[in-house]
Write a protein that binds this DNA or RNA. Structure first.
Lengths: 242, 242, 242, 242
DNA sequence: AATGAATGAGACTTCATTCAT
DNA sequence: GATGAATGAAGTCTCATTCAT
């Protein structure tokens, strides 16, 4: 049936075109948001950067808000996929937690602008939109709504690697918020922190993660204090050790 | 010399007047920033709320930015004083750290709007202004630029209450950033977090602090696992325990 | 000749299709104009309501104006037919005039939205378009350009039912404009008038018509004032009485 | 008290200036509304015509709506004053009614643009704003909310100059709406009507008014029909005669 | 010093209409 | 002929800031 095929073809072509345009807009907007911050970007900037006319943009997104929101969703989704892949690859409970932490650290190193974008979003826009919408979106990262992480803690308690006196639900939220909060703060203040501390931010972040891990881990038999002080390694980007 | 005295008098009166005006402006602005968020407040709003004319405001502050900045400085200063008083009152190193943490927790409970204000500031404005200015300002909290906190850690290592393998400088920054980052995140997302977790944010925050403390503490002799599971206390607003 | 027939057939089908599309557009537009007012309706609204694409609409009407104009013509035509039927059914001159008036009253009751539409058209668009076009269109109502109505007046003068001192042409226009003007005003302000007067608009309108009729009627022998005051009937929707 | 005086002076000066600016804006807007119609005038047009910057205009009127509304109020007020003066100057009930009618006729002749403006307002804006607001405004014309006109009718009935079977309230509203509706229609369609009829609109309008008056007047002793037809005088702007 | 007025530079958004397929 | 995409020209309104008194 040539006619149908033609229709389908052209419809597909149309669709492809639309998708391309959408991408152009989103890419331009995303880049600008990262560079200047959400509030420093106007619709006119976006259209100028995307090569699409301002009025055309409104055929794809009804609002500036919607553009922001869409980008946020995409960022979250991408992260979600990365995180899940990364975490699945290890077996042991503590190792998984560590690899989740690792994920946040990598993100800070590799996508500091994206993290800062999300941080700004939380600080500026979260208040305006219904919490439900945000939760729904954030829960995409771990489809089981973090329950999975609580499960890991439960596992760790069971196998003796984590402190037995943790409340899995509570600890989960406490730790996740600490990790995310720290990550975003460091991303937001990036240069400032480096200037203050004199070292790359991820160094700092990994130390935070190490302390959190230690805080959850079951107490070990106290090692005798080593005779000579052994300063912690200072290599950059090394894996989290404890 | 009566004349001089008069001048002095009136100059004093003049100064007092100026100070009063400044306060009116700052108080109004501070309240509005807390309520609506920095970017949702216009100069017109501030002048309406303060009763001082917009043009007059520019005789006290050259910018909207400067108003924001001034309020930030005041907030920091106030916190600084509180923090230092609180911390001085205890002697032992670990206790001091704990009381510093306690300070942040109280702040989250008592002044969530102020914390949110600072959070928004970091997310939105920090990028625009030279890092040096921010550092200079934040360092007011602890005049010794947190060196004091590093000192506490060193003390703790020395007296065996903290892990011997901590790098005081590094850990200090790592932990402080974690505490501050978590606190601000929780303040920013307040309702949202409560909705997600079902408990007041400070409960969450105190658990974060507990884990961080545990993570820094020197490993104890492992306690034998108690025969009956002993769920962690669920009391609200209880002090940090470990 | 099969070919011709086919062509004719398909051409007929084609015509039918075009007519259907046109109708869809006009119906949708007409409904929207009635509901929201001409100026509150965009082409996008019309296409959304009609199911016909915006660009397609331009193959049927070259303008938004043309859509408006076409609808106006249809409304006029429809009224014209009704009016003529109604009027033909009576014989006596005064009765015919009365039945013409009746027609306007019914229209106000049954099609207030259409009347309001025409009223808005007059107020907004009449000024932009050449008067000739409007006259040409309005004269459709009475193909003889109201001459017919003037004829009625002449008749009435002749048979003594109307005042002998009327100038048929002048009175015709004066009365028609009064009737139409009042009707449209009442349709435009509908609720407002009811609120102000506390009675349905048609009550008011029928009283206007009664006074106009009385004004044209030849003076009767003065009736003696009745002994007891006889309040006028208050029934709703009663016929015009004098 | 020189200081007080100074303050008062400058405050007066300020006030005077503000009033002047307001006037400039309103005058410009009024002129444009009259010329082009309300919807054809943009804020930019107004500011261009008034010589005041667009943003300045918003310090005097928060809306385009408010400008329109203000002008409407002024037009109404002005009319109100004229009408009341005019009417007070006569004593007899019928004469007063006639002089009220005369007022509307003069208005149509002298201020056709203003009348058209009000007509457009009714047709376009009346639907958007609460009827109460409109009523409140219209009732300014006759502070007693037309009750005064009803009183005239009552008087006329009593002294035998008007038909005894009129319902004062009902007739009042019916007649006023007819007069106003006709006046506005003629103002809106001005040229068109003249083109159709070949005579100035006020001729038409005065005839309408005459018929209405006749319709309200108590039936006289029928005059014998004069032997020769006596066409009504055709002079322009003659007073209403019956 | 205080203030009312003024303002310019944009921000977001809408909409009738045209084009290319 | 139908359609989806594109668009340019406006339109309303906001706001930090400056000026003149």
């Amino acid at each position: 049936m040539p006619r149908q095929q033609t229709v389908q073809k052209s419809s597909t072509a149309y669709h492809a075109h639309r998708e391309r345009q959408r991408r152009r807009i989103l890419d331009a907007a995303g880049r600008l948001f990262d560079e200047r911050g959400i509030d420093r970007v106007t619709m006119a900037d976006i259209t100028a950067a995307s090569g699409v006319q301002a009025s055309t943009t409104y055929q794809y997104f009804s609002n500036k808000e919607e553009v922001v929101w869409t980008i946020l969703r995409e960022v979250m989704q991408e992260r979600s996929e990365c995180a899940q892949q990364l975490v699945k690859s290890t077996a042991n409970a503590e190792a998984r937690i560590r690899s989740l932490f690792e994920f946040f650290a990598d993100e800070l190193v590799n996508e500091p602008l994206k993290v800062r974008f999300v941080a700004q979003f939380d600080a500026m826009y979260a208040r305006d939109w219904p919490a439900e919408r945000l939760i729904a979106l954030e829960s995409q990262i771990f489809p089981e709504s973090f329950g999975w992480f609580a499960g890991l803690i439960r596992e760790g308690i069971a196998d003796g690697s984590l402190r037995f006196d943790l409340d899995p639900e509570l600890t989960m939220h406490a730790v996740i918020n600490a990790v995310v909060g720290t990550q975003r703060r460091l991303a937001s203040l990036g240069k400032k922190v480096e200037l203050e501390y004199g070292h790359p931010v991820d160094r700092l972040f990994r130390e935070t993660l190490r302390v959190l891990l230690l805080g959850m881990r079951a107490p070990e038999k106290p090692r005798r204090r080593p005779p000579r002080k052994q300063p912690p390694a200072k290599g950059r980007k090394r894996k989290l050790t404890s």
